[in-house]
């Protein structure tokens, strides 16, 4: 498989008003292969969205590099990035706020192609509407006339207008009801198969991730703590946090397990050593002192834990 995008030791810090620093993403390295779907999962605030945006050049990293098809795209000026923009597109969770309420759907869909000086706009729109399962009668209508599920279809169509190689989808189904969520998950899978577009799929829902992704990267307080094949990781998690996250998913077919203690610590003052040690049921004295580095435990599985479960 060829590597499409690669991040090396990527960090992103936000400077807060009181001179404090918030470490949203710390020392993340990952690759996305051509046509593959990589899921980023974790609890709110763990840095998924920040990482997703940084990967495609929406905001510069504080340190580290991003390569697209082997060329460094981090640290480029907006002008220099322009050439890469059509290749990487983003889909957000709240589809209502990403549409201009005063523009028709037709105008909104045409915009990316117009900005990049493309021709054949009408044909492209017609083809994409068909692919996302909408009729061309939507073109003269306004965003508020659509349901959440329909708006998400339009959002996906817009992101695909320029024929990107990589789609970063940030919680694309989280605001939807289950029945509509299933429609959108199916659509995204179909599009990946038919267009071969790679996808970084950000979600906190492990069941949706399992359905959508090839590989999974689990984040905790800005770091990737486990990474591997999605079915293998969810079948047998190696990191105690992955297991806790999996156990906490409410399922119709099993009782409520004993919950994990406490809250996620603040990313302004992350714990020393392993960031998970304040909540980890398996923590040992060493965990509070020494940070576990990601290491490969079996083929295709990387874990940052001193005492992995595998």
């Amino acid at each position: 498989m060829t590597i499409l995008l690669e991040a090396k030791n990527l960090s992103k810090q936000y400077r807060l008003s009181h001179g404090q620093t918030l470490r949203a993403v710390s020392d993340v390295s990952l690759v996305v292969h051509r046509g593959e779907a990589l899921a980023l999962v974790g609890e709110s605030g763990c840095g998924k969205s920040t990482l997703g945006r940084t990967l495609i050049g929406l905001g510069a990293p504080s340190s580290g590099d991003v390569f697209f098809e082997g060329e460094r795209i981090s640290g480029l000026s907006d002008r220099a990035l322009r050439r890469w923009r059509p290749r990487m597109q983003m889909v957000f969770q709240d589809s209502s706020s990403t549409f201009n309420p005063r523009r028709t759907i037709g105008e909104t869909l045409a915009e990316p192609m117009r900005i990049h000086g493309r021709t054949g706009i009408a044909e492209r729109i017609a083809a994409l509407l068909e692919q996302v399962g909408l009729s061309s009668s939507v073109l003269s209508r306004y965003p508020h006339e659509f349901s959440g599920g329909q708006r998400q279809r339009l959002n996906i169509a817009r992101a695909l207008m320029l024929g990107p190689d990589l789609l970063v989808a940030d919680e694309p189904t989280s605001a939807l009801d289950v029945s509509v969520q299933a429609q959108i998950v199916n659509l995204l899978r179909e599009l990946r198969n038919s267009l071969g577009v790679a996808c970084v799929f950000i979600s906190h829902d492990l069941a949706v991730v399992r359905q959508m992704a090839d590989r999974i990267a689990v984040m905790y307080l800005g770091r990737i703590v486990e990474e591997g094949d999605v079915l293998a990781v969810l079948q047998a998690p190696a990191h105690p946090y992955t297991r806790a996250l999996l156990n906490a998913v409410p399922r119709p077919d099993r009782p409520l397990p004993p919950p994990l203690k406490g809250d996620v610590p603040s990313p302004i003052h992350p714990p020393q050593g392993c960031a998970f040690h304040t909540r980890c049921p398996l923590a040992q004295p060493r965990c509070a002192q020494e940070r576990p580095e990601p290491h490969r435990i079996v083929e295709g599985r990387t874990v940052a834990c001193h005492y992995p479960l595998l």
Binding site: V178, S179, A207, R210, Q211, L234, Q235, P252
Partner: peptide, 18 residues
């Protein structure tokens, strides 16, 4: 409603019943 929930184990369906 119950069928539309993606499974967390077992085989992964090509498409979810929606």
């Amino acid at each position: 409603l119950l069928e539309a929930i993606p499974p967390l184990d077992g085989p992964r369906p090509d498409a979810l019943p929606s």
